[in-house]
Amino acid sequence: MPTGVALRDVRAQLFDAAERVLLRSGPSALTSRAVTDEAGVAKGVLHRHFADFDAFLADFVLDRVERMDSQTESLRSAAGTGTVVGNVAAAVTALFGSVAVAIVPLVIFRDELRARLRDAWPAGVPVLTEGAIMVASYLAAEQELGRLGSDAPVDGLAPTLIGAGHLLFADRTGAPPTPDAVHSMVTTVLGAHLRP
Rank of each mutant, 00 (worst) to 15 (best):
A18L: 12
F60G: 08
F15E: 06
G4T: 11
D151K: 11
H166C: 09
V88K: 10
L14Y: 13
G40E: 07
Q71I: 04
T83R: 02
S98A: 05
R76L: 02
D9C: 00
D111P: 12
G97P: 11
L128Q: 04
L14V: 12
R20M: 04
F53P: 09
A115T: 15
L145Q: 13
D119N: 12
L106Y: 09
S98Q: 02
P179L: 07
A100D: 05
P179T: 09
D171M: 02
K43T: 13
A42Y: 11
R76N: 02
V84D: 07
Q143N: 07
A17L: 07
A192K: 09
L14G: 14
A100G: 03
L148W: 03
V182K: 04
D59K: 14
G44M: 11
T72H: 13
T72E: 13
V5G: 03
G131N: 02
L62W: 01
L139Y: 03
F56V: 14
L113C: 11
A17N: 09
F109C: 07
V154K: 02
D16R: 10
V85S: 01
Y138S: 03
E142W: 03
A12F: 11
T188Y: 04
R48H: 14
E73L: 07
S70V: 12
R172A: 12
A34R: 12
V21M: 10
V45L: 02
D180W: 00
V65P: 13
R114F: 12
V186P: 08
T72Y: 08
M1H: 08
A18M: 11
L145K: 15
T36S: 08
A158L: 02
D16C: 02
A89W: 01
R172P: 04
V99W: 06
I103H: 06
P27Q: 14
D63G: 15
D37Y: 10
N87F: 05
I133P: 03
D180L: 05
H47T: 13
E73W: 03
V45N: 03
M185Q: 13
A42L: 08
E112F: 09
L190N: 01
S74A: 11
S32G: 14
L128I: 00
V107P: 04
D151L: 09
T36Q: 05
P105H: 03
V45C: 04
L168A: 00
R195K: 06
V65R: 15
L157Y: 10
L161F: 04
T160M: 08
V101H: 05
G156F: 08
A102G: 01
D63S: 15
V92K: 00
A29I: 15
S32Q: 14
T3H: 15
L128V: 00
R114P: 12
R67C: 00
V41M: 10
L145T: 13
E19I: 01
A123K: 12
T160P: 03
P122E: 13
A17E: 06
S98N: 00
D111Q: 13
A123F: 10
D69P: 08
A192W: 02
L57Q: 15
G165A: 01
E142A: 00
A91G: 11
T36V: 07
P153K: 09
V61D: 08
D155H: 10
S70D: 09
P153E: 08
R195I: 00
A164C: 04
G191R: 03
L139K: 00
F15A: 07
S74I: 02
A115I: 14
R147E: 12
F109T: 10
A6M: 05
Q71W: 08
